[in-house]
Design a protein around this nucleic acid. Structure first.
Lengths: 186, 186
DNA sequence: ATATTATATTCTACTTGTAGAATATAATAT
DNA sequence: ATATTATATTCTACAAGTAGAATATAATAT
């Protein structure tokens, strides 16, 4: 649904190879979007077919050759269109596997569920730490590059990450509290 | 990833038709999972091929005929296996379109973004109201049916819905506050 | 020499989700 | 009579995600 626009968005900052795009993706969008390397390259091919990007092969002597992708005007229009003509319904679509898992908690093993909740909480705490690091790097990057205009938006998405993760941590704690008394199965 | 297990879970409560399953889905799992009717029927066919469910045709005179689906022992095993042998990585996979949209906010129209955030906030408030209704119905249902053992788990997923939605509302408010001074484009 | 790391892209096979139209039957409401 | 609603399922076509293996080149480290 949105990986396409994520890629267009990153390319709107500057032209780059699939390899660099993947790295940048993993330092930024990865916080709220999942994608395999292969998916990114495949999407780049699809975007090129649609004339949203162009690519240019660069011959290198010291490293393998590479293809540099550049967003076109049509691609920029598509990015803007996606931002401006969006339906709120799409943003409301949720797929929350963890919620489904606890919903059917009675069908599984109680102690395993407790373990999972604890692990989940720890994973979210790790996520928070990564996010804090990203926020610091963002501040440094923002000062050295000409991207001051982006900062407020990047901060908004980081803020969203914080609120979600903290909420999930709180939720896991409350669940563990609820399950504290329970022992054995179901 | 999980619709399959959502269907197995619902069928583990009792056998039913695709039609009733869809209705039940829309009153329960819909709060944290999205699925088209056609997807549910397709998944039911797939589950039958895998012997996770069986189906029996019921001839009706007053209504169209129907197929009643029943979970098998293999299906119950699969549900339990999914619950007990799960990787935390899968639960950490996020796809948060709204976060991506604000991330690239500079590429769109500022006033449209503000409108969207307001609309988003309202939609989440509506979601909260639906969730409260579902919680009340759950309490009534729980007393009339023999499903007291499920209640704690259902509450845990409802609680998760509350925390997420409230977090998102707070986030939207903070974003609107941040954008308050800004006028015009970018 | 050998192994590892970084760079850079491609490939295959499969699963899942999106979106909504189409098809039917029969009861109920106007 | 006619329209609407509830019941019940099927179909098509496409888009996107999952998962990881495979292929290459060249620098650097041991």
């Amino acid at each position: 649904m949105s990986l396409k626009h994520g890629i267009l968005g990153l390319l709107s900052y500057c032209s780059m190879t699939g390899y660099d795009l993947t790295k940048l993706f993993n330092e930024s969008l990865k916080f709220f979007w999942n994608a395999q390397t292969s998916q990114i390259y495949r999407e780049l091919d699809a975007l090129e077919k649609k004339k949203y990007v162009t690519s240019e092969q660069i011959i290198q002597r010291d490293k393998p050759n590479k293809r540099v992708f550049t967003i076109t005007d049509i691609g920029k229009d598509e990015l803007t269109r996606w931002l401006d003509e969006h339906s709120i319904n799409d943003s409301m679509k949720i797929r929350d596997e963890m919620a489904m898992r606890v919903f059917f908690g009675s069908k599984g093993d109680l102690s395993k569920l407790k373990d999972e909740l604890l692990e989940y909480k720890k994973a979210k705490e790790m996520f928070l730490i990564h996010l804090e690091k990203a926020e610091k790097e963002l501040n440094e990057y923002e000062q050295s590059s000409g991207k001051e205009g982006e900062k407020i938006y990047w901060l908004m998405s980081i803020k969203r990450g914080y609120i979600s993760a903290k909420g999930h941590i709180q939720w896991a704690e409350e669940c563990l509290e609820l399950l504290k008394e329970r022992k054995g199965k179901n």
